[in-house]
Write a protein that binds this DNA or RNA. Structure first.
Lengths: 186, 186
DNA sequence: GTCTATACTTGGATAGAC
DNA sequence: GTCTATCCAAGTATAGAC
């Protein structure tokens, strides 16, 4: 999270643990294997936050309200698990990397597929809204990327140490979602 | 742009030039100096795209229309100069890095300051809108980061090779801006 | 399961010929 | 201004003791 994949050495990690390389390599076969484990956990937490909200769809709230709840859950999860999620972003860049073993390549492909599946949760909801007459001047795909982008960009600027209370994270998430849902209408 | 700062070796760069390290080191004192040069050019292009739009403010268009034009110009610049701008993003991460010489540190601080100045162009416009009754449920700062984030996230997903025509970039930029300006109102 | 010691490779940077 | 050759540091990974 702090320095990115390449700038972080196994020695850095060992030092943070108060131990040495040996311990790290006892638990993980390679550096990228450790990265994969963190990435997987990060994706799990995103799904755990958003899937329950999608499944509550039939309990009376409108399609638009469900989307708003999904965005809110996503934004909050990003802030709460900022450590894991800022590792997840880096998976995208590693994707077009080149030199790795077939197994590593396959694992990475799985992780990217899981990111796509996550985005599709939002695309599905947006497609339903478009049918209902919303979103007239944008495609579902670009809308999904733009809305998620507005939230996910917080991974770039948000510093968890500056503001630690759960309530302030909740209201920060709310602010971001408000901007995206209501745009700049008066 | 393709592999990120750390994963790209000077040999990679020399190979792309059809030459060797020697040439690169004749023109740039160090790897980070080369990075700085690209970053600087990237920031220059962003300002060149947006500043003229801000300065046209007094020519009859509304504050809201000016903001929309600024976002559009920014989005288009990101797509057009995707190569430079995706390097600019990495400056943020390098910022909290640690080991560098005082001169390098100072240069990096200047680059970050220039990013902040850029964001302030949008904050200024949003502050004027807030006074006029817009943006009631979000702070100027979070709104700026969220709106810019929606656009800047295209640096993560946009692949310039897939769609090369200026017209299609223009309409892609338009779509992103529409989502952000009009939100999900019907 | 954790440590120390070390093998091996990559990559930033420099020297000096042309 | 560009090349080749080389130095040196950093960092991944492994071997083997405890």
């Amino acid at each position: 999270m702090r320095q990115g994949y390449h700038a972080t050495s196994i020695d850095d990690i060992a030092r943070a643990l108060g131990s040495t390389k040996g311990r790290v390599y006892h638990h993980f076969a390679s550096k990228i294997d450790l990265f994969f484990a963190v990435h997987r956990e990060g994706m799990k937490r995103l799904f755990d936050a958003v899937v329950p909200v999608v499944q509550k769809e039939d309990t009376g709230q409108s399609t638009l309200e469900t989307l708003e709840a999904m965005l809110q859950a996503h934004a909050l999860a990003l802030l709460e698990h900022h450590t894991y999620e800022s590792v997840v972003v880096q998976g995208v860049h590693l994707h077009r990397f080149g030199a790795m073993t077939p197994e590593e390549r396959q694992t990475l492909d799985e992780l990217i597929a899981s990111r796509d599946a996550f985005e599709s949760l939002f695309k599905g909801q947006l497609a339903r809204l478009k049918k209902a007459g919303f979103l007239r001047h944008a495609s579902v795909s670009v809308a999904a990327k733009t809305l998620l982008g507005g939230i996910q960009w917080s991974l770039v600027w948000y510093r968890p140490d500056q503001d630690t209370s759960p309530a302030s994270r909740e209201s920060l998430a709310r602010e971001m979602v408000n901007v995206l849902m209501h745009g700049l209408v008066r």
